[in-house]
Amino acid sequence: MDIVGYRRIVPGTQPEYLHPAYTSSVKRSPTKKLVQLPHTLTEVTGPMFGHDKVGPDDHDLTKGHAGAPIGERIIVSGRVLDGDGRPVPNTLVELWQCNATGRYRHANDQHDAPLDPNFDGAGRSFTDAEGNYKFITIKPGAYPWRNHFNGWRPQHLHFSLFGPSFMTRLVTQMYFPGDPLIPLDPIFNCVTDARARDRMISTFDIETTVPDFALGYRFDIVLRGRDATPMGM
């Protein structure tokens, strides 16, 4: 069987594991040199999920409760692309976030900000045949964290994607344009390549803004690309 592997990471375009400015990485990142793994059949395959797992309203985080959540309603949409710019269809996209006050619905989040009974902060969707996805939600708040003195996370959404193989697995965060906390954030700034880093900032989009309803933000997500030639397996 001819195996076509996935392209290796270009240094600087993905975070290093040890990033001392992000203090949690210090005791949890590998210290020994990683072993280069050739991409075998194991690596180039990966889970495929049935669409029956996702309900028709699962992409709308403002639904499912007695009332509407507090906060600025937004529409977040975009395309999932492979490393050659081709759409990635029918792939699972998972999203989670805090509420408009900057509080997560999680027992360990003790930030002194109110929970919203009408907001859980989780959604999921599949991309369509052209790689498009869409979520309706509310804009998350900024919140403090204990990484460093007076540290605040910029407003962000967590995204999780699988793509066509276990090598394309990606968990990332989407940020909002113009957020003054972005330049101060050790997590966002873990990537040294500015162009790669800026992929994580969504753009305001009047085209997907719906009159009298919600602002639109666009967030395209690029998964790892594939090598051109088989590895001769």
Binding site: L81, G83, D84, W96, R105, D109, A122, H158, S160, I187
Partner: peptide, 24 residues
């Protein structure tokens, strides 16, 4: 075709269970 730089990874953070536990 031009090659696109993949979107960088970011940590799942301490509250990943909100978004990921449905598929445990």
């Amino acid at each position: 075709m031009s090659k696109l730089t993949p979107t960088p990874s970011q940590t799942v953070g301490p509250y990943y269970s909100i978004g990921l536990n449905w598929l445990i």
